[in-house]
Amino acid sequence: MPSMVKGLAAPFPLSNVDTDVIMPKRFLRTITREGLADGVMADLRFNAEGEVRPEFFLNRIEYANPSILVVGDNFGCGSSREHAVWGLKQLGIQAIVGTSFAGIFYDNARKNVLALAGIEPELRDALLKHLEQGAQTVTVDLEAKTVVWGEQAAPIAMDAATQQSLISERDDVSDTLRFSEQIKTFEQKQPAALRVKVPT
C-alpha cells in the first residue's frame, strides 16, 4: 500500500466490537473471498427486512463512504474469521484508527494490507470529537507512524515488522519458502514425539 492513507474518516466508538458483528455468519458460507462488502456490520446497517437503518453511522450522509474508521477499544475481538477484514477492505476501508485491536484480527489485517493504527486513548477520543459533526479528512502516515487531523498528530504504536509488511505488501509464503532448507533442517532435529502423523 502507499505509505500514506489520506481520506474521510467516520467514527464508530463502541468498545469490544467483535468479528461476529463485523461479518455476520450468514456471509461466511462461501468458498471465495469476494462479495463480502454487503456483509460488513450488516445487522447494524440493515434491519431484519433488509432496509437501511438510517441512524447507523455508515448510513448517515455526513459519514458516507469513509476510507478510514475511528473505533472503540479492543476492536475485532472474537472469532478468527478473516472474512471480516476482506469485507472491510471491499467496502473501501484502508485504515482503522483505535487504541487496541484483538491479536488475530490485527494479523489478518496486516496480511490483507489494512492498516490498524493504535494511538493513545486520549488522542483517539480527541479524534472522535473532531468527527462528531461529520466525516473529516484524516491522514494515516505509516512511514512517520502518525495519525494526523487538523492541527493534531498522534503517534501510532506499531512494530517495525508490521509497518514494513504493510508498506511493502510482501508475499509472506514465497518469502518463507526461501527458508525451505532451514525448515527441513529443523524437522530433522525435532523430537520424534512431536512429529505428528494424523491417521487418515
Partner: peptide, 30 residues
Amino acid sequence: KVQDLPDGEMLLYVDLHVMNEYTSPQAFSG
C-alpha cells in the same frame, strides 16, 4: 523457532495444523 526474521519476528514451526470447512477454502485456493 526455525529462523530469526527481521524486526524481531521469527519462523515458528507448527507440529499440528487443524482445519475446518469455513476458514480453509480460500487458503487452498491460494
